[in-house]
Computed example of a mutant assay.
Amino acid sequence: MARCSNSLLGILNVLTLLLSIPIIAGGIWLSKQANTECERFLEKPVIALGVFLLVVSIAGIIGACCGVSFLLWLHLCVMFLLIIVLFCYTTFAFVVTNKGAGEVLSGKGYKEYRLGDYSTWLQKRVNDNWPRIQSCLQDSEICSPLIQERVPSEQDFYKQELPAFQSGCCKPSNDCKFTYISPTNWTNPGTARSANPDCKAWSNDQNILCFNCESCKAGLLDNIKSAWKKEAILNVATLVFLIIVYSLGCCAFRNNRAQNAYP
């Protein structure tokens, strides 16, 4: 039984090591295939995460299976810090994504998104980095489905359930009261008046549309909020796994010390 925790810890670290290989391969693939600034931005964190998991797993395997107490102690220190960081990050993710939601419009399938409804911290991060984010969104061609789609009438368009990105970045705000021509082509009748600055930011240029609008930033934040909520739930499961691994590591470390002290 004394070696049971060492064996279990070794098996779990082997699984983590195997997991790190496709993560590193994915990061290298991204570096080779990257065509946009967004994709190039992702490659380094992915590779770093894979290498980190690889090194920690190797230290855990050697420490648990070969009785090297120093490596096992190092593994435990890293695991403890990882648990603390992940716990703080998960708590923070729940807090900053607690505010904000799309506004339901009467008679319309899509929602309107307003920047001021979301967390002040998230708003500041998006505003500070908007030129880069905007470039990435345009490169991703998120409005292409609407540009290519043929919707015969305004009423048919209003029935569509648009994702947050498309609702915020690919059409003008409902406040503007523009006249519908096509999903990405709207005209100002001249009588419409609105205090919403997005009305002036809108352009029928298919490369601009509403990418300069506050609603586009809000659409991004709504996507971030949904993604972070899902990630936070996954992080809770990951925390449970890490705590189990850490507990087994503590048992294995105690076994190593007992065996080294036995002579």
Rank of each mutant, 00 (worst) to 15 (best):
F94N: 08
A93H: 04
F92I: 09
G116T: 04
Y110Q: 12
G102I: 07
G116F: 02
N98I: 00
T120E: 10
C136P: 06
W121R: 07
S119M: 06
G100F: 01
N98V: 00
Y110R: 10
V104Y: 11
G109V: 05
I133K: 15
S135P: 01
T90E: 00
I133M: 14
K99A: 04
F94I: 05
V126E: 06
I133P: 09
K108V: 12
K108T: 10
Q123D: 07
L137A: 07
V126H: 05
K111Y: 10
D117P: 09
F92N: 13
N129S: 06
A93S: 10
R125H: 10
K108Q: 12
I133Q: 14
G116P: 01
L115H: 04
S106W: 06
K111S: 15
F92V: 12
Y118C: 10
S135L: 10
G102Q: 11
P131M: 12
N127F: 08
K99V: 02
D128Y: 00
N98F: 01
W130A: 09
V104R: 13
C136E: 08
S106C: 07
V104E: 11
R125K: 13
K111E: 14
D117Q: 09
P131W: 11
Y118H: 05
C136Y: 04
R114G: 03
T97L: 13
P131H: 15
T91R: 06
Q134C: 08
T97N: 15
S135Q: 08
N98D: 00
G109I: 06
E103K: 14
S119G: 10
T91H: 03
L105G: 07
R114W: 02
K108D: 12
S119C: 01
N129F: 04
W121D: 08
S135G: 14
G109Y: 01
A93G: 10
F94C: 09
T120Q: 03
S106Y: 07
V95L: 09
Y113I: 13
Y113S: 14
W121T: 09
E112A: 11
N127S: 12
K108I: 02
P131C: 15
L115I: 03
Q123T: 03
G100R: 03
L115F: 08
G116I: 01
V104C: 13
